[in-house]
Simulated scan of single mutants.
Amino acid sequence: MAESAKLSGTGDPASGSPRRRATILDVAAAAGVSRQTVTRAINDMPGISVETRSRVLDAASALAYRPSRFGRGLVTGGDRQLGLVVSDLRNPYSPELASAIVRRAAADEWSVSLVDIGLSGAAERVLSALQAQVDVVVGYLGEWAPEWESRFSATPLILLDAGSDSPHPGVLLDPADAIEELAAHLAAVGTRRPVVLDASEPPAASGRGLAMVAALERRGLSPELVHAAASTPEHASAVAAQIIRRASPPDAILAFNDLMAFGVLSACRHAGLDVPRDIRVAGVDGLSIGTLVAPTLTTLAVDFDEVARHTLELAVALSEPDPEVDAHRVVAHRLVLRESA
């Protein structure tokens, strides 16, 4: 029997080296058989002995090999399957992202299964079921990303906006340049008392909130960072209602996301403030609904179609292992100036 194949990245996860998915060639080498024999054993086809089939299946199990649906489709038929994970479908961000990925997936002949691990209340069960049904999982796993590494590693994972230091392939959303543009614009139109409304528990601050503060400081301003316990319109409206009643209220509020910006607009309306004459408001994400509120919302917009394109390219690279493909992609936000600022 041939020596077991050694897979890069299947050792210590703390080493930082990326985990490579075992291929059919790895199984063939470990079992001492041909690729065609592995195909016959995995798909329960005739033409091999019971002993050989058992040896192949044992090797596949030891290597955590999971045949891609695309590969099986060559034998049995069927589309490639993408599992999309979101955290809250009540947030308009999730369906906008999902619709872009579904459109791109359909064009590339993939099917999509969508799960919400935030609303399900049973994230482990949902993820376990999903990984058994799809070739690749993509999405926002948050605290569940390390769990995937240790328990669901046979199915490749693409993380969205997980950070450039993530060991997993992914698509990073980068607002840095757009934040600088927004800060420059606010300084140019005479902003003097800006507030950054962050989605964080004090005294901590998000990376996005800190970037907004730093960009404004580089323009000679002294922004205040205030905290909302959650990134929702309700929490943002409550916090904004307090700060706009001050003796010296802010003349601009930069919200962590568009949903929070909608809450700020609501608080301003109830306080009788004119936006943007009395106070300017901006958000982040570029949600479509931002064009329907009054005033229309200035935002740092994500190109969801670009995110979808990178996601499907990575999905193909993982389902048909290609070491030459860049596993970490970046999509930059862009400043969209509308009435609110």
Rank of each mutant, 00 (worst) to 15 (best):
S231I: 10
V336A: 08
R269Y: 13
V330A: 10
A41M: 09
A62H: 12
A211M: 12
A317P: 10
A271F: 05
L119G: 11
V316S: 14
P223C: 08
V302T: 15
G83M: 03
G47F: 02
P295N: 02
D198K: 00
L89Q: 06
P295M: 04
R277H: 14
S288I: 13
L160C: 00
E217V: 14
H333N: 11
A105Q: 05
S340M: 02
S113K: 11
D258I: 04
N43D: 08
W110V: 11
A215G: 09
G220F: 12
E96S: 08
E306D: 14
P202E: 03
I253P: 03
V112H: 05
L254E: 03
E339I: 04
V126L: 11
F256N: 09
A199G: 07
D79A: 14
R219N: 15
D79P: 12
S150A: 14
H168D: 02
P295T: 08
V136I: 11
P92E: 06
A205D: 05
R35W: 05
I117E: 00
E320K: 11
A14L: 14
V102G: 02
S4P: 13
S319N: 10
I117K: 00
S266C: 06
E306F: 05
A41I: 06
D274Q: 09
D322W: 04
Y65S: 07
R280G: 10
P194R: 01
A205F: 08
D161Q: 12
A240K: 07
F70D: 02
G290N: 06
P175I: 04
R246S: 14
D177M: 10
G139M: 05
I179D: 07
L186K: 07
P250D: 04
I253C: 03
A145M: 01
Q133G: 09
L314Y: 08
D12E: 05
V226E: 15
R193T: 08
D285V: 08
S113G: 09
V302Y: 04
L318S: 09
P233H: 06
S87I: 15
I244S: 02
L265A: 04
V136H: 04
V189H: 00
P169W: 03
Y65F: 15
S206V: 08
H270Q: 15
I158C: 03
L141E: 09
L157T: 14
A241K: 00
G286T: 01
A229V: 13
D88F: 03
G32T: 07
A122K: 14
E180Y: 02
A204M: 10
L127S: 01
G209Q: 05
P156E: 05
A31T: 02
A178W: 00
G209H: 03
R329D: 01
H235V: 12
V115I: 15
D135V: 08
A205S: 14
H227G: 13
L287G: 03
I289Y: 03
V264W: 03
M260K: 04
A214H: 13
R338D: 06
A255V: 00
G83C: 03
S99W: 06
R193D: 10
L130I: 09
E306R: 11
S68N: 10
P156D: 00
H333T: 01
L273F: 11
P233S: 08
V112T: 08
A238N: 13
P95I: 00
Q242W: 06
